[in-house]
Design a protein around this nucleic acid. Structure first.
Lengths: 157, 157
DNA sequence: CCGTCACGGTTGAGCTTTCAACAACCTCGA
DNA sequence: TCGAGGTTGTTGAAAGCTCAACCGTGACGG
């Protein structure tokens, strides 16, 4: 985090620099493309789709706000705003949690599930077209290992 | 882009699915961390740092708005707003282009260059800490090849 | 009990980004 | 030379995100 070592900076070497530039460009374009596709076809940002997707995989289509935040790698504030928005569209509903009265449960509605099902095929097709079609099976494995290594070194949230 | 094939969807298999989930989580956390670091230490979002960085590497510290948009993988509108903001802080200045009167040139000021130089060490340290320190030299090479393959299949802008 | 502190969640302000519309300019062919 | 169509850039509104402040609740030690 903070630079305490009196000015010694180890800059990126050539290979690192090219890799970093390519990473920036690729991630920017990739989730730009996926986000635009989702907005165009389903009228919602990709982040909201992911909220619906995570809810649909949870038992009883329900998650606590905090868990939803963690699983989607976003802040509580972001989730709160997003769920409010999704609730206005009747795709999600909020209920108090009986066990812990601080908590709020978010539940996917039938309409929300329908919206998810409607949006999924085009989304999956886009992920496949933009990502997996460009890679060999071996590369998919390498990528997962690399990402796993990076992720495990990354501070949580 | 559009799904025209009458309902046949090829879903992601197990390995693809895990890779995709890990990619989402890793990129979200990684540029969340880098963005927060930049905002905290330099008072600007990472995207603005990248604008300054690209200008600093251009001849005469100057780029046309369109070229700046392309090199940073962002829309013209985004660049226009961002440069306006940076101009208010006197880190960039805008000039009309003599060759083509439609164009606007963005030029990095001395103050902007100073801000960039001040922000660079902590940024590079963060990139190293969060990304490259987790990877072997071989993995860095694999990652670059994988990203290159994905990028080349991705529609421009 | 009671006070303190951590946890879960929401809110509003400010900033960034997107989208669509627009204006100015260039190019090129009729 | 004129006009159509493409390029370059800006703008304003709407939407999403971040940040800090805040409230209500649980947990825990005295």
């Amino acid at each position: 985090m903070d630079e305490r070592c009196g000015g010694e900076v180890r800059w990126l070497d050539g290979a690192e620099r090219r890799t970093w530039m390519t990473l920036l460009a690729t991630t920017a374009r990739l989730d730009g493309a996926l986000d635009r596709q989702m907005q165009r076809d389903a009228g919602m940002p990709l982040a909201y789709y992911q909220i619906l997707a995570m809810l649909s995989e949870a038992p009883r289509h329900t998650l606590r706000m905090t868990d939803l935040a963690e699983i989607t790698q976003s802040s509580q504030s972001r989730i709160s705003h997003a769920v409010k928005r999704l609730e206005m569209q009747s795709w999600v509903l909020r209920r108090p949690c009986a066990d812990d009265r601080r908590s709020t449960l978010a539940e996917l509605t039938d309409a929300g599930h329908a919206a998810l099902v409607a949006a999924a095929p085009a989304h999956v097709a886009a992920v496949r077209a933009h990502l997996f079609d460009a890679l060999s099976t071996e590369q998919v494995g390498q990528l997962r290992e690399i990402l796993g290594a990076v992720l495990s070194e990354l501070p949580e949230t």
